[in-house]
Amino acid sequence: MHPLLFELPVPGGTRPIGSYGALFALALLLGGALFVSRAARAQLDLGRVMAALAIAIGGALAGAWLLFAVVEALRTGDVFAVLESGGRVFFGGLLGGALGSVIAARALKLPLATLADCAAPALPLGHAIGRLGCFFGGCCYGAPWDGALAVTYTDPSAPGAHPMLARHPWPLYESALLLAIAALVALVPSARLARGSAGARFALYAALYGMLRFALEPLRGDSVRGVVRGVSSSQLIGVIVALGAVAWLGRARRAST
């Protein structure tokens, strides 16, 4: 892991460039490029698609921080702790991005379901790259474990290094599985997905990721963050998202017959 990518010399000193920030930007770039290429294949107006993408990204960033802020404020009862932490939550980003996409699709007169299908493989691709950033930054680390794949975060600036224990390489697990979801969602024939219903590809992604997150969360070792009766906030949202997506797929399949 390398939390610090390099030091940028500026007048009067240097500024650190973190691996997490760089990989986060790379995730948005590659995910965005895949989204736009699929939108071009779907013969959508690229100018409006780019505008919609910018609105969705803005919504996603705002949602990711807002959900984090709400969870953290509820947990600590301290609003200032939120300002100091600056974290983000993926499901908040997904919900914020979805809201931004709905607004953009209406304002720019774009088909929302087609946009969602174009985003379906791009989201897990970008998310997988972002999780690599988590790994290099030493955050979102795994539960203590002494198995063959265990990693030990040693850089003192990594949250996972306190205490310095062998752990599950949780970000790597999720990154690998997200890449598999991206490939599956991109390659599965439309006809097999609710008989080609628009939006089915996105629903497949949502169902798979919800289940993945629910299954992987116990290996993450977040005993503090948003756990209610043994279920973390991300697990709860993951189950709701997955069930909603499966129900939507079933209904679309019945409607298409």
């Binding site: 610090l4 650190p16 932490s85 974290g87 070792g221």
Partner: peptide, 16 residues
């Protein structure tokens, strides 16, 4: 001790 209150993102690199 669970430093994951910064979950979702790592802390910034050492500030200058």
């Amino acid at each position: 001790v669970d430093p994951d209150v910064v979950s979702g993102s790592p802390p910034p690199a050492f500030p200058p």
